[in-house]
Amino acid sequence: MATDAALRRLLRLHRTEIAVAVDSAFPLLHALADHDVVPEDKFQETLHLKEKEGCPQAFHALLSWLLTQDSTAILDFWRVLFKDYNLERYGRLQPILDSFPKDVDLSQPRKGRKPPAVPKALVPPPRLPTKRKASEEARAAAPAALTPRGTASPGSQLKAKPPKKPESSAEQQRLPLGNGIQTMSASVQRAVAMSSGDVPGARGAVEGILIQQVFESGGSKKCIQVGGEFYTPSKFEDSGSGKNKARSSSGPKPLVRAKGAQGAAPGGGEARLGQQGSVPAPLALPSDPQLHQKNEDECAVCRDGGELICCDGCPRAFHLACLSPPLREIPSGTWRCSSCLQATVQEVQPRAEEPRPQEPPVETPLPPGLRSAGEEVRGPPGEPLAGMDTTLVYKHLPAPPSAAPLPGLDSSALHPLLCVGPEGQQNLAPGARCGVCGDGTDVLRCTHCAAAFHWRCHFPAGTSRPGTGLRCRSCSGDVTPAPVEGVLAPSPARLAPGPAKDDTASHEPALH
Rank of each mutant, 00 (worst) to 15 (best):
K133D: 02
A191M: 06
S24D: 05
K52Y: 02
I18C: 00
T3I: 01
S153A: 08
P119A: 10
K102Y: 14
S248R: 03
A19T: 01
P176D: 00
P129R: 04
A25G: 04
G54T: 00
V192K: 12
E88I: 04
Q173M: 15
K102G: 05
E207Y: 02
L81M: 01
G91M: 10
D105K: 05
K164V: 06
G263T: 11
A121N: 11
L67C: 00
P148E: 15
L32T: 00
K165T: 00
P148W: 02
P254F: 03
Q157D: 04
G240P: 07
E51N: 00
P154A: 06
L7K: 01
Q108K: 04
P95Q: 15
Y90T: 04
K120M: 14
R247M: 14
L177E: 01
S107L: 11
Q213V: 00
I224L: 06
R139T: 06
Q173K: 14
S64E: 00
V38I: 15
R174V: 04
V20Y: 06
R190C: 04
E270F: 09
P154K: 00
Q108Y: 13
V199R: 06
V226A: 06
S249Y: 09
K83C: 02
P143C: 09
A271W: 15
A117K: 04
L29V: 03
S99F: 05
D198K: 06
R15Y: 00
L93Y: 00
S217E: 07
S135A: 15
A21H: 03
Q44Y: 02
V206Q: 02
G178T: 11
N244V: 03
P39A: 00
P176N: 04
G197I: 11
G227Q: 10
L158T: 03
G155A: 14
A258D: 04
V80A: 01
P125T: 14
R174L: 04
P119S: 07
L128T: 15
G269M: 05
G240C: 06
F77N: 00
A33L: 02
I18S: 02
R257W: 06
R92G: 06
G201I: 13
K259S: 09
P266M: 14
V192W: 05
I96C: 01
F82H: 02
D36L: 01
L29P: 01
A258E: 12
P109R: 06
Y231P: 05
T16Y: 03
K243N: 11
R113V: 05
K50N: 15
I181F: 15
D70P: 00
S241N: 12
P254I: 08
V104C: 03
D238K: 03
R132A: 02
K235P: 14
R139A: 01
E17L: 02
K245R: 04
K165Q: 05
E270W: 14
E53R: 01
G218Q: 00
Q173E: 06
A142W: 13
N86D: 00
G150E: 07
Q262T: 07
S169V: 14
